[in-house]
Amino acid sequence: MTQASYGQFCPVAMAAEVLCTRWTMLVVRELVSGSTRFNDLRRGVPRMSRTLLSRRLKELEHAGIVERRPVPGEHGVQEYRLTSAGEDLYPVVEAFGLWGQKWVQSDVSLQKLDPSLLMWDMRRNLDPSPLPSKRLVVQFRYTDLAPANRSWWLVVQPSGDVDLCRTDPGFEIDLYVETDLRTMTAVWMGLATVATARRNMSLDGDPEIVRTMQSWLGLSPFAAQPKLVP
């Protein structure tokens, strides 16, 4: 699908023609974050339709930012990989994120809550190194959500891989986290810490896992950037 042109030779205008269509930068964010399969990309943009995601990936492929590759050992399965041009977008995505963390007001950010995206980001950013080298299960229960979206499980494997489950995986729970979605999102964004959020959070489980939660919890890669607006 051909996008309307700005009609300017400026490199900013030409880059904007490729990258500034709706959802495109969020798809690039997911690719930069390491997602390569279509379904994983969808989990990072849960409100984007499959049809539109497919269209944006084709546009990025046409622009030379993404290429499709067959997955070895999986007949008919393809994954999306960044080209050299796509890899050059790492600092662009980082600059977008840092600007948003610094200059977008906290209340504006916390009006846009999404448990699917929050849990998916927590899964891929979780740091297993402070945790015991065994399978661990953390159950999150968001008290302000409807029953269908209330409970989520992170399963940390001894290898360090982390799985996100929407249904009970059937393992013993090492830590129960009960809170509201806004509180957990604020912690993830670096707007609060586990310690400062404890008045709105119930933690029940292994005391050592509770004690180190701030260090292993998968925070936003921009959480360390201080806000410059309230």
Rank of each mutant, 00 (worst) to 15 (best):
W99F: 15
S109F: 15
Q111K: 14
L113Q: 00
D114S: 09
D114W: 01
P115V: 04
S116A: 11
S116F: 06
S116H: 12
L117I: 08
D121A: 10
M122T: 13
R123T: 05
L126T: 02
S129A: 13
P132R: 05
S133A: 13
S133P: 04
K134G: 13
K134W: 11
L136R: 07
L136G: 07
V137R: 07
V137T: 12
Q139K: 01
F140E: 01
R141L: 15
D144T: 13
D144C: 13
P147I: 11
A148G: 03
R150K: 10
S151M: 15
S151Y: 09
W153I: 02
V155M: 07
V156F: 02
P158L: 10
P158I: 08
P158V: 12
S159G: 04
G160A: 11
V162K: 06
P169F: 00
P169H: 01
P169S: 01
P169T: 01
P169N: 01
G170I: 05
I173R: 00
Y176Q: 11
E178D: 13
E178H: 09
T179P: 08
T183E: 09
T185Q: 09
A186M: 11
V187W: 04
M189G: 12
G190F: 01
G190A: 03
A192D: 11
T193R: 05
A195I: 09
A197G: 12
R198A: 02
N200L: 04
N200F: 08
S202R: 15
L203N: 05
G205Q: 00
G205T: 01
G205F: 00
G205S: 00
G205V: 00
E208L: 08
T212S: 15
T212L: 14
M213C: 10
M213S: 09
Q214C: 08
S215T: 15
W216L: 00
G218D: 07
